[in-house]
Design a protein around this nucleic acid. Structure first.
Lengths: 343, 343
DNA sequence: CTGAAAGCGCTTACAG
DNA sequence: CTGAAAGCGCTTACAG
């Protein structure tokens, strides 16, 4: 079973050409006489030869890999993003080195150290400290250091010059959501949020206030409900808090689909009907929306093109990227929203 | 910004030792005089030096990476498995090269070619043709060829000697599920399945029949419902088919949590109550179970330890692995099952 | 179009 | 404990 490594030299010897010629055929950089090429290809086939990517990486000083660092690889949002990145990377002949930081600062440090050794051609960073509303100077200096080793792109705001940021347009998503509900006739709208320390939440909170005010809708602070985390549990917590209020809004926005799913459970359990008694919307348009009953209307993004953009920005540094880009959002209508009923 | 690569030679020169000494300090293979070590470490710090993993890979002929090839990286089951693998790999200082085949044969071919170039120390393969009940000879020969380049472990049955297979114990999962429902008092149990060509389905179908028979429960073939795929849609299709029957069972097993979620929607929509009118169970115990209302009872696995096993088998070829292992299963009780009511 | 040779940045026998 | 040197398997100026 111990098959010794067959190299370009073995191929060259057998095909009676120089190793350089074999290499040229492999890389396709120079044209080679057809006769030789044929002979070489035959030998390659015969030995089932595959050039060693590590050696090539060293010689070419590039290794056709992109490090993808995500906060929680088993979270639907992140797994959609990186599945999209993977498919674009694959299309371009690149492989993704997946690393999960579990949102822990100490992991972020060691993962970035690892990236510095691995020398991927680029790193795409999604989630974790990068999303903090107030940038963490220690993390910034870690990023700055990592920039010496590889190009960085973040699925967030750009933290530093030279690091493009591509992220969901949180403000647009909130504006669209509120206007959609208002369009349905809702005036009393609540928002169940979490992660106030993150820019995505901060942006949505600010935008929520701005749009509600602009539309002359009542802004009641007890309808801005903070919960512990981005989960079904968080949503249930939100529902509990809501149900203690003397007056509840006619429509509710959940931080993401998971939170909305939790909200839905809590509301249903309390005997409320959705959307007859209260409308409910989520963010992210993950497959969670298809599992709830009623199915959840949600603000979505085109993950496929988001991933493609991230990879493009990662691999085409020469292009003149805007430092900050926001990807478009849209509303995916399902069954959880309706005109407000009279109660 | 163009920082030229600082190498072990630069460090050596400045620390006034030989490159070999720097290398020894980095790898920690030999003891080095404390005085020199200190000096070298200082210079390393000063330049923020990180050894080039590509060069190291070439010299050591190992690159601390594992290729993880999955069928659908954004599917909850697979993303749980690889999140678990990632955390174990990371713990061991390995990085995962993630590749997604989207279950397409042509992608499997090119992905495995890619693996042969990349020379990861091992490859973990989950999903796709490997799961076919009837092995595909063409795929087997591709695997055999890939074995010449890297060790292979599959999250399935072992396809070939030398390739350990670690997989969910589908038979045990089905037996446990049926016995659980029978224990609740159910005699009329249905199974909504898909992917009959895959061994996991075949095993569960066979075991379903065996256990039902053993328990003297009625085996009606119209209660074995085949649907198009492993999705919510598949589940809804199952519900439609079921509702056309003149007599429906008192309990239903769905192929996985997604299918069960679809079944639930279909049954609820038809005015049935779960679990009062009909009990419902899923397989895989993904987070989908927490999103449905009622929450779904499901047969689960310990993903964390499954991932750890896969990585262990991948990285410890010297150990005497059984060629085939099955990971244990358990029932996670939630709210979707109850004793049969009288209708 | 093609070959000989140097180089990519490490590691590791081999000597001492 | 430590250095000089060869080697890992490629690519790519440099000459021809």
């Amino acid at each position: 079973m111990e098959k010794k490594n067959v190299t370009i030299y073995d191929i060259a010897r057998e095909a009676q050409v120089s190793p350089a010629t074999v290499s040229r055929i492999l890389t396709g950089t120079t044209s080679v006489r057809e006769e030789k090429r044929k002979k070489v290809m035959e030998v390659i086939e015969k030995y089932d030869f595959h050039p060693n990517a590590n050696a090539r990486a060293l010689a070419e000083n590039r290794n056709k890999s992109i490090a993808m660092v995500v906060a929680h690889s088993d979270n639907s949002y992140y797994s959609s993003v990186f599945a999209a990145c993977e498919s674009e990377a694959y299309r371009r002949g690149y492989v993704l080195l997946l690393m999960d930081t579990s949102s822990r600062a100490e992991n972020e440090v060691s993962v970035l150290k690892r990236v510095q050794e691995l020398r991927p051609e680029a790193m795409i960073l999604c989630g974790g400290r990068i999303d903090l509303e107030k940038q963490d100077p220690e993390f910034l200096s870690l990023l700055r250091q990592t920039m010496g080793f590889t190009r960085i792109v973040v699925g967030s705001r750009s933290p530093l010059p030279g690091i493009p940021g591509i992220s969901v347009d949180h403000r647009a998503s909130m504006e669209m959501a509120v206007r959609y509900l208002a369009g349905l006739g809702h005036r009393e709208i609540g928002f169940v949020y979490t992660g106030k320390q993150f820019y995505g939440t901060a942006e949505r909170l600010a935008e929520f206030r701005r749009v509600m005010k602009g539309l002359n809708l009542p802004l009641r602070k007890e309808w801005l409900i903070g919960v512990k985390d981005y989960s079904v549990d968080g949503g249930q917590e939100g529902a509990e808090k809501l149900l203690k209020l003397e007056k509840i809004p006619t429509a509710l926005l959940g931080m993401n689909d998971m939170v909305s799913a939790g909200l839905l459970q809590g509301l249903l359990a309390a005997g409320l009907r959705v959307p007859e008694d209260i409308s409910l919307m989520g963010f992210d348009d993950t497959f969670v929306t298809c599992i709830t009953a009623p199915q959840l209307t949600s603000v979505g993004y085109d993950y496929q093109s988001y991933g493609a953009e991230l990879v493009r920005a990662a691999l085409e540094p020469e292009a003149e990227w805007e430092q900050d880009r926001r990807i478009p959002v849209f509303i995916e209508e399902r069954a959880s929203c309706a005109a407000p009923g009279k109660r």
